[in-house]
Amino acid sequence: MTITTIGFDADDTLWQNEAFFRLTQDRFTALLADHAEPDHLHDRLLAAERRNLGHYGFGVKGFTLSMIETAIEVTEGRVPAAVIAEIMAAGREMLEHPIELLPHAREAVERLADTHRVLLITKGDLLDQERKLAQSGLGDLFHGVEIVSNKTAPVYAAIFARHGDGPDRALMVGNSLKSDVIPVIEAGGWGVHIPHGLTWALEHADPPQDHPRFCALDHLGDLPDLVSRLR
């Protein structure tokens, strides 16, 4: 069946994101160097992030709160107020960081917007994602924007039914196998994986290599040709 609707992930698919989390995590590690070894601190922070997803969701604000919680835990409640202030400042800086588009992002969206319905489907903090989209300069190219709390098969099915002709005539492209590819395939659509050099540990998953609706590309520049072949 002809693909009529294409969904794009945002973070680490259209623009850089995880790199800023890694830089902030390095800063966090340095702040607590007298209290915990880096590997132990990273494990504790990841555990806090996993634990807090249901409370704070995805994004910078939840990450910042998880850093504060971890700092309190590893210091047994003795973390200096100055360190908490540094962590909060680091979080604010992340929320103000300029957008850096990834290679081929604009070209791919522009080309496909001429022939298909193109959607931005991203998860995370509403205000931060709206800010990044506005700064990206890509906003006017999308026929619809969906900022969701999580990406699951039912969520994708509802989005592609609302904006298109259902998931079986839709394709989703992104850097996360867990969020951008596997649930779309489960919903009946095509999932296209474009790896990013940095991927958050909680987004790792095994690729569904044998599924007929799974594809992998090296970069977004190859996407328009792939869509043409699938038609």
Rank of each mutant, 00 (worst) to 15 (best):
L138S: 03
R213A: 05
N150H: 05
S179A: 15
G189H: 00
I121K: 03
G144E: 15
D210V: 07
G189Y: 00
T199R: 12
L138M: 08
G189L: 02
L119N: 01
G144R: 14
G189E: 05
I185T: 02
I121S: 01
D210L: 10
F142H: 12
S149E: 11
P207D: 05
I182D: 10
V192T: 04
G197L: 11
S176C: 12
K151F: 00
T122D: 10
G191W: 04
L177G: 01
V173N: 03
H143R: 12
Q135D: 14
Q135A: 11
Q209M: 12
R213E: 06
M172F: 02
R131I: 08
W200R: 14
H196G: 13
S149T: 02
V145Q: 11
V155H: 02
A161V: 04
R169Y: 12
L141D: 12
A158D: 15
D206R: 13
R162F: 13
V192H: 06
V173F: 06
I121N: 03
A153Q: 00
N150A: 10
A170W: 07
A187W: 08
K123Y: 03
L177S: 06
V192P: 09
A205F: 15
E130A: 13
R131Y: 09
I147S: 00
Q129I: 08
S179M: 08
H204M: 13
L171S: 09
P212Q: 02
R162E: 15
V148W: 03
S149N: 04
A201Y: 12
A158P: 03
D210R: 08
D210W: 02
P195G: 09
L202V: 07
D168N: 11
G191Q: 03
I147V: 03
P154N: 09
V181N: 02
D168W: 08
A153R: 05
R131N: 07
P212Y: 01
I194T: 01
A158K: 03
G197W: 12
E146Y: 15
E130S: 12
A187S: 01
I147C: 02
S176W: 07
F142P: 14
V155E: 13
G144W: 14
D180K: 01
L141M: 11
L202W: 12
L120F: 09
P183H: 01
H143W: 13
G191M: 06
L171G: 11
W190T: 01
A201Q: 14
A134V: 13
W200G: 06
S136E: 11
T122R: 00
V173M: 06
H143L: 08
Q135C: 06
K178I: 05
P207V: 02
E203T: 10
V181R: 00
N150W: 05
W190M: 00
L141K: 05
D140K: 11
G188A: 04
H204F: 11
A161I: 01
H163Y: 15
D140E: 09
P208C: 05
G139W: 04
D168E: 15
P195C: 10
G166Y: 14
I121E: 00
Q129T: 06
D210Q: 13
V148S: 04
E203I: 04
G174C: 03
